[in-house]
Design a protein around this nucleic acid. Structure first.
Lengths: 422, 422
DNA sequence: ACAGTTTCCCGTAAATGC
DNA sequence: TGCATTTACGGGAAACTG
């Protein structure tokens, strides 16, 4: 008969950062006659601390509230807790005998609600608790925390298995790929198409992806580093999500970023295209980078591919990506600079695709000559490569098939019923 | 017989930000025989709150310490307070009947030290306090706070006149100009020369500067806006100081930035110089901006001056200033771009001056084509102006005459004796 | 409405702990 | 020593508050 609501991180619920305020809401599901009753609710963090030695936190601020008739709205009695804040309990006497098995973002916690219902001298105690929570101390831990929240909610419907990451189950690629696409549609406004997911699957699993029920381990997804790289799969993918959110939103939503393409496929797509055809791809070697690759033909008819050094958030905050594409120039040994980007793959004239996204500098009336930064590459020597078999060009992405996932990864606790006991 | 030491902001002592840790040190000036004594020291914020209604703060953390034999070093007994933190007292019952005359950065506070000295059953109480302090709640108030600290210490030697800004005295231009130059030599490594100070004086006072004992009011210095601008004189100057500290340090220290030049003087300096001669000047219209002006001659022999839109910290963090000078290009209606900057005024070949400061991009071995940003201006039409009489070029700056100011603006409380009483 | 002031909190850097 | 985690706090922006 009662429903808890979740703390809200900016779009990332179930993650609480110490020292940062969060809110929660508890709702009584039974309708009460308007008699003289009182319902006092208390929030407690980690009420039944689990067996494994984990960090312990407490709610710093006032955590008790009374539901009264004012709070009665929308047909149900509820109470909002605001300005709640978590702080770690520090044991002066080093009792923290941590087994060190789990990282902090794998440690699951929970928020309990105790309600005391008083009617005409009678008191009834109610109790419920939240889905598992991850507690972090710095936003740098947010990607890791979000990985845990995703994995938990993808793979179990248990309301409170705090030992989940002691032995986390694997996810089938078909499950996982849906969640990944859903991440992009939720946070960037457009999901991933089959080709993009295919590349991600191969990156994660090798060539097994054809077999859609191949399973991915938690470790592979978020703990192990990609071979030869100093970061794991989810770290890499999340850095791209952040890059899109901050710097590429319109370009991404216009579907102009192919993004996830292997270099092999990229070359086979561009191979037979007109000179100056380019596509946009995320860097696989650096976190949060985007590059463009364009095709050229050298004098002897050989096909050449060029990729620019990936642009990261620092560069992109100095110059929006669409402007980079508009203004990019290559200067070879003192020749007049030229923009090598002509057609967005497969054959859209550059300005037709990006025209609306250019930042037309509103030339203010000043005594100054306005100046802008332009991205330029200086070529001394070329690396030319020819590539293997060609593959058919991919059509525009057609997602939207994943929107029903809101049920599966349900973080909106308003729609989740958690049957109340005791 | 005792000496207090000051809280330290990053190079800006006497300013404390709420919620941010500060330290202080108290020293006993008498040497004590090594007998069985104890000296307990307590720090109290705003012990004797002044009559004017001001904000009130308290020290959040532990504020009592005992000097014991361990602390005995360098021949004197001392105690360090670390991790002190200020928090505002909030009156639930709106007792804060503020007269609203003073801004928060004009409100002066102080830190008191009470010591209790116990020897063989005898106790002696000692007490001292700090120079006036400014309390801020956000770094955005730091320039205003620093203006107050400068003005106070420039114009009075009273140890604790907390009502100073109720009726602040004026400063003579000769005093003030020394302090301004000292700011640049302290925070940017090089002070201001006579020509630069002259421009600042005219900006502040009009043409009166010839008369060196002209006086500047506190209001003119830091409260009133410069006519037609949304910022005051000190705000403007401090924004330049910050720009130098973060982005122009080597260029400033090489004395390549003339910086403070009126547009009239600038033109008369460049007028008869060779085509492509340029100088670097701080923006007077925007906070924290630097521009270059170069001279050209149009086909009919007319002199033309061009200034680029000022570079601010955002642009400069994308591209270091020396590189901007190296790479800057102007493209006129499709013609081959050209760098119009040839000689740093008066006649130093650009690369000779800035060569050592260029960021030679270490071209990493990657499959990517490296790309850099270059600053470019596109010209459609020119504004040409001829200018009045020419003035002699100025020699390299010769400061260093201001270094004795350390006495006058003494914030290093270690060297300040504050006679102890009671 | 608004300006002065404070709070909030991300994101980087430094400090700390293990 | 190195890695994982926390703390510190500048800086931009939102919230507050008369």
């Amino acid at each position: 008969e009662k429903q808890p609501c979740m703390p809200t991180h900016p779009q990332k619920p179930l993650i609480i950062k110490t020292g940062v305020q969060f809110t929660t809401k508890v709702r009584l599901l039974v309708k009460l006659p308007e008699v003289d009753y009182q319902l006092k609710v208390k929030t407690i963090f980690d009420k039944d601390l689990p067996p494994g030695r984990v960090r312990q936190f407490f709610i710093l601020t006032n955590n008790t509230k009374v539901m009264d008739i004012e709070d009665y709205s929308n047909g149900c009695l509820s109470v909002d807790f605001r300005h709640l804040q978590l702080k770690e309990k520090k044991y002066i006497n080093g009792t923290k005998g941590s087994e060190g098995l789990l990282s902090v973002t794998e440690e699951l916690h929970s928020l309990s609600f105790e309600a005391c219902f008083t009617v005409q001298g009678l008191t009834i105690d109610l109790e419920t608790c939240s889905l598992p929570l991850v507690v972090i101390s710095n936003v740098s831990q947010l990607p890791g925390g979000w990985a845990s929240v995703m994995w938990y909610n993808l793979l179990t419907h248990e309301p409170r298995n705090l030992a989940f990451f002691g032995n986390p189950p694997r996810a089938s690629w078909s499950q996982l790929s849906e969640v990944l696409s859903w991440q992009f549609s939720t946070f960037a406004g457009r999901g991933l198409n089959k080709e993009q997911l295919n590349m991600l699957g191969e990156k994660l699993l090798g060539q097994h992806v054809s077999c859609n029920d191949y399973h991915v381990s938690w470790s592979k997804f978020s703990k192990e580093n990609i071979s030869g790289k100093p970061f794991g799969f989810w770290m890499w993918l999340d850095s791209i999500l952040e890059l899109i959110k901050k710097h590429l939103l319109p370009v991404w939503n216009e579907n102009y970023i192919m993004g996830f393409v292997s270099k092999e496929l990229e070359r086979s797509l561009l191979k037979d295209r007109e000179r100056g055809t380019f596509l946009l791809r995320f860097s696989e070697s650096h976190l949060g980078g985007i590059t463009f690759t364009w095709v050229e033909h050298s004098d002897n008819g050989e096909v050449k591919f060029n990729s620019v050094e990936p642009y990261t958030k620092n560069r992109l905050s100095a110059l929006p990506f669409a402007d980079i594409i508009r203004d990019y120039k290559v200067i070879s040994d003192g020749v007049v600079p030229e923009n090598p980007l002509k057609f967005l793959y497969p054959d859209i004239p550059k300005d037709e695709a990006f025209g609306r996204l250019y930042n037309s500098q509103p030339s203010k009336v000043t005594p100054y000559i306005t100046s802008t930064l332009i991205p330029i590459s200086e070529l001394r020597s070329h690396t030319s490569t020819s590539s293997p078999a060609c593959q058919s060009p991919e059509p525009p992405m057609t997602p939207g098939e994943f929107n029903m996932l809101n049920d599966q990864l349900c973080f909106d606790i308003d729609t989740m019923s958690s049957p109340y006991s005791e």
